[in-house]
Design a protein around this nucleic acid. Structure first.
Lengths: 341, 341
DNA sequence: TTGTAGGCGTTATCAG
DNA sequence: CTGATAACGCCTACAA
């Protein structure tokens, strides 16, 4: 019965119900707005919709309304355990407001970032949430974004002209290092991720600040860079435990690195926290399940995702308040850090 | 200069370049197909595109071509470490073929599944990849999918009329249990996830098969259900280690449960694998980094994602071959399982 | 090689 | 309360 090649449209419904397409459109929008439509007519139409299994074409609607109800979500790599909660935060906040999300994994590759950005603009997403780095080498598409009224909010990044939700990495790291110092540690190493990451830079900074305050600046500062993986933490730890005297504590830029450090310590015959204390960052789910349980800095990733969506929607609504939102972190003290032997 | 309210369209480009919209359209599609266009004209147009920051509207294009280049990806929960590699597999395969993905987290909630399904149809995604369960209680939308030529392939599910990519959970579990039996274990417990999950049912089945083959069926079968979390594994293990005699080995339905079991064993003063052997499922990244390293069944999740996309695209192309693709699993023997003391 | 015009599936405006 | 009809931004014959 549907006339267009295999896909049922509003015209088929209109024909089946014996009304005009305009009327069908009305009963469709009657749900939200209050357009007047006779009950009898509505029933006819709804029956037709049901029988034909009709689903309105949101593309056509979007074309007309200049609004797709889609949000682009750009992350470095969903396989990094840091991101799933953020993604959930974004998705839950988005879907509860009628938006869907299109996910883009960039691997921090400027070419991929660039490509995804173009795709998102071409599909006319209403806005974009970007997390993580790799943007330094991406040609600035801001003007184009503006051309198409695409909103953008960054999460966890520092260098951007757009609104952003972030945490105070310097302060968080200072607190974590301070905790170790308070425990009596004097030789503390910092195991970072990529040196190019502003997050890593900030955490290294907080670490140095804490050492300086404690008067340990030169004697005890040891900073290693690598990436955000277990391997990286493992390798760095194996090396670092070999120097003499070895550090008595390790401040890791994330939990994955800390996990690698656990493994390296075990393989080197050192016990945590007796021989070496370890502190992480992120409070990933495993932190509670490794033994000893991991002392780490908790970051409200899920909430940050939600906040990003709220800011984005505000931005789309023309509301330009709260350009930067800083969310609180918290040092979760567990069993992996103790006074040095 | 753009005339339409704030967003630059093909007409603006045409005007700026002093040509017709058709010509602009041609230089746009000239990239892929080979439409004839004079170099001089092309340059003019491309200059205009550049200057105006023009990005073609894929909505309009999709409307015309009945093809959105979008794939819906439905998973229970991206925060479950099992899914990120699958999602990456899908995204990488999709994006390399010019498709983008819209991500849907269902929490196995029939209402959410249903809602997302409608959204995906309304936005006219070309196809849908569904992973994980919760579909038993969802009213069948298959007819509607057909109305809109939406492809669908399931990954890791058994009850479905659609093509699917899966693994042989029964055989994999049989092998894992067999490994434990071969080590000399006689009292082996199975720690499952949700009893309603076909995956869990199959793994329990494989476990029972192995026991039976070894003549242990009645004496040694202990099956616990719960969910796929560390908590669940922790709780089950604490209980199970209290019975006397306790099992000497634990076969866990996934690595998260196994991780919970590690923690419970430690808290109960039992050593792995001396006092209790543990085997997991999934070969999550942490498996290599816990100590002792975790013996577990490796599942090619990333590849399964890629396979799903290939099958989906074949389906869209009218190719209906390979209705079911079964991918190989592999028991990765590490240090968490050893002969009983 | 380039321009004109019709239509993709909706919604919105205006008459009736 | 309902029905024509003109957009939305683009592609694709068909003409020129």
């Amino acid at each position: 019965m549907p006339r267009t090649k295999g896909t049922v449209s509003i015209r088929d419904v209109a024909a089946a119900a014996g009304v005009s397409v305009a009327t069908v459109s009305r009963v469709l929008s009657a749900a939200s707005a209050d357009v007047p439509v006779r009950k009898e007519t509505r029933d006819k139409v709804e029956r037709a919709i049901e029988e034909l299994g009709y689903r309105p074409n949101d593309l056509a609607r979007a074309l007309l309304q200049h609004r797709t109800a889609a949000i682009g979500l750009v992350v470095p790599d969903i396989s990094n355990p840091y991101y799933p909660p953020l993604v959930r935060g974004v998705e839950d906040a988005a879907s509860s407001r009628g938006y869907r999300i299109v996910l883009c994994n960039t691997d921090r590759d400027p070419a991929k970032i660039s490509g995804y950005l173009d795709t998102l603009i071409k599909t006319r997403v209403d806005g974009i949430v970007v997390a993580g780095g790799g943007w330094a080498d991406v040609p600035d598409r801001t003007a184009v974004l503006g051309n198409y009224r695409t909103g953008l909010v960054a999460v966890g990044r520092h260098v951007t002209a757009h609104p952003s939700v972030r945490i105070d990495n310097v302060a968080a790291s200072r607190e974590a290092a301070g905790h170790l110092i308070g425990l009596g540690h004097r030789r503390i190493a910092f195991l970072g991720g990529p040196a190019s990451s502003t997050t890593v830079q900030d955490r290294a900074q907080g670490y140095r600040d804490a050492l300086k305050v404690a008067g340990l600046a030169e004697s005890g500062a040891v900073v290693r860079y690598g990436d955000f993986t277990e391997e990286s933490g493992y390798a760095a730890t194996r090396e670092i435990l070999d120097v003499s005297p070895p550090p008595t504590a390790l401040l890791c830029a994330n939990d994955r690195i800390a996990l690698g450090a656990y493994a390296a310590a075990a393989d080197a015959g050192r016990r945590v926290p007796v021989d070496v204390s370890i502190v992480g960052f992120d409070d990933t789910p495993i932190a509670r399940y490794v033994r000893p349980t991991l002392t780490t800095v908790s970051i409200p990733t899920y909430e940050m995702g939600g906040a990003a969506v709220r800011m984005l929607l505000a931005q789309l609504g023309g509301n330009t308040a709260s350009e930067i939102e800083t969310m609180p972190t918290r040092l979760v003290v567990r069993d992996s850090a103790a006074p040095p032997a």
